[in-house]
């Protein structure tokens, strides 16, 4: 797989007669910021579900670095450095932000199964969690329960939870969905500030943001990859204009 951080080989998936992934071949090199775009229902979320193991592909293989992870459980993939966020918030409503991220840190460090020692004894786990939250501007709100946070803060917490797993590859499913425009630029600024060796794939509908923050763009239509290239290449591609940008301009 010569140096790819994440790759898929001939990934296929259908729900009944609806084909949601069609021979998806993906190669994400290390440290590159990818945008995954495509109309609603194109199968973008499904692709993330397939890669992270929340759905089983009908055929095809998935590689994380050199390793074939196709048959691993979702949590095992996470432990190997593949993290994701959810398009619709999937958080722990009754945990405080700090507790939630501390939990993710504990799981990563492998002592989440320890029941005979108090949580406060793991001071550095809490500190690390706090640092992650602070880096996403949640430091001041970290003692609030998740369900008391504003929607935008909850979107950030989604990312904080993923980061706490120390991923090598991070898949963000519409991280700015529902966030006001000015705030979403801030959010992506935070994302682009992440470590350089981290490979990021994000789904996003706002073309300004996509062109600003992505080094490469993948266009997906009806379960298949239509084009993959630099923003300029994609912007000039006539097929993309037709099926995607064209539509966007009209609507």
């Amino acid at each position: 797989m010569n140096g790819a951080a994440l790759a898929t080989r001939g990934l296929n998936k259908s729900f009944g007669s609806l084909v949601v992934a069609k021979d998806v071949e993906l190669v994400l090199p290390h440290g590159v910021r990818y945008a995954l775009i495509g109309p609603n229902g194109a199968g973008k979320t499904t692709l993330i579900n397939l890669i992270t193991g929340m759905l089983r592909p009908d055929t095809g293989r998935i590689f994380l670095g050199e390793d074939d992870i196709t048959s691993l459980a979702p949590e095992a993939r996470v432990r190997r450095g593949l993290a994701r966020t959810f398009q619709i918030n999937a958080l722990f409503p009754q945990l405080s932000a700090l507790e939630a991220v501390t939990l993710a840190v504990c799981e990563r460090r492998g002592f989440a199964g320890v029941w005979w020692r108090g949580l406060p004894e793991y001071r550095d786990a809490a500190d690390e969690a706090h640092a992650i939250l602070a880096s996403l501007l949640l430091g001041e709100h970290c003692y609030r329960l998740t369900h008391e946070l504003s929607y935008g803060q909850q979107r950030l917490l989604e990312i904080a939870l993923a980061l706490a797993t120390r991923p090598r590859v991070l898949l963000l499913d519409e991280p700015a969905a529902g966030v006001p425009r000015d705030e979403s630029a801030e959010l992506f600024a935070a994302i682009s500030g992440l470590a350089n060796d981290l490979t990021v794939l994000f789904i996003e509908h706002d073309m300004d943001i996509v062109f600003r923050f992505a080094a490469r763009i993948i266009v997906m239509v009806s379960g298949g990859i239509l084009v993959e290239g630099t923003p300029d290449e994609v912007a000039e591609d006539t097929r993309v204009r037709e099926v995607y940008l064209g539509k966007a301009h009209h609507g």
Binding site: M54, E75, V78, A90, P93, R108, G113, W116, R117, A125
Partner: peptide
Amino acid sequence: RLIHSPFGLALRGIRENAVRMSAIGAPNRS
């Protein structure tokens, strides 16, 4: 002691959202 341990926190995580637990690498079944 148990509920105030890391394990207790993990249990609350399972109660709150088992899917997200897998997404942060937690072995829910164990």
